[in-house]
Simulated scan of single mutants.
Amino acid sequence: MESVDVIDQRGLAYFRIRGGVPAYTNKPEGWHKGGGGMKQVPNVDLPETLFVRWQSLVEPKTYKLRIDIPQWVRDEMVKPQRAYCPGRKQWRDKQYRFDISIGMAPGGIAKAWVGGPCLSNIEIGRYQAKVDPRGPFEGQSGGKYYYLSDEAKVYVEQHGIPYGSW
């Protein structure tokens, strides 16, 4: 992931709040359904629009996507929930779905979920990104992508990319 930018419900913009490296769940087909590398973003109100930019290393292509967050998601984020926390083996009041996870896949497919501690993730939607013609790192890398590990290269050569699974 190269970047995530956010416009909150007050209309304030926050740029490059998240970037990162590829993650893999040892299951190339389907979705992990939320979670993963997180970053807290202080002083941001409820999200209205997310702009996501990522590299698909197996293709290689760079994708960009705008996700408009529906009102029902913001409503869900401020609604206190009672939830069972398996780690603590107890019920907890006033749990909130305060994070949004975004899964990105080859072909420019993305999904988003809203979730929180002890609460299940709820799918927000499935999206089709567009190829960014500037390429990796907004055209600042001379066309060079983040590297694909040797192990991943071998896997893709042997099994292909499971495009239809996302």
Rank of each mutant, 00 (worst) to 15 (best):
A105I: 01
K39A: 12
L50C: 06
S56G: 11
P47K: 06
I109Y: 12
K39S: 11
L50G: 04
W72L: 02
R82E: 04
K27M: 07
K94G: 11
G87R: 04
G36Y: 12
S56M: 11
V114D: 11
I100V: 15
I69F: 00
K61E: 09
K61R: 15
D75C: 01
A23T: 05
G35V: 11
R74H: 06
K79C: 08
P70T: 00
V52Y: 05
D93Y: 03
I100K: 13
P42D: 11
P117K: 01
L50Y: 05
L46Y: 13
P106W: 03
Q81V: 01
W54P: 01
G34D: 11
K79T: 15
W54R: 02
D68C: 02
R88K: 02
G116C: 02
G103P: 00
D99Q: 13
D93P: 09
Q81G: 00
W72D: 01
G107H: 10
Q95F: 00
E48P: 05
D75T: 02
M38I: 12
K79G: 10
P42K: 12
P80V: 09
T25D: 14
P47C: 07
S101N: 13
V41L: 15
K61C: 09
I100P: 10
D93M: 03
W72A: 03
Q55A: 13
P86C: 06
A110S: 14
A105R: 03
D45M: 15
A110H: 02
R92H: 15
R92T: 10
P117Q: 04
V78Y: 06
E76A: 10
P70R: 04
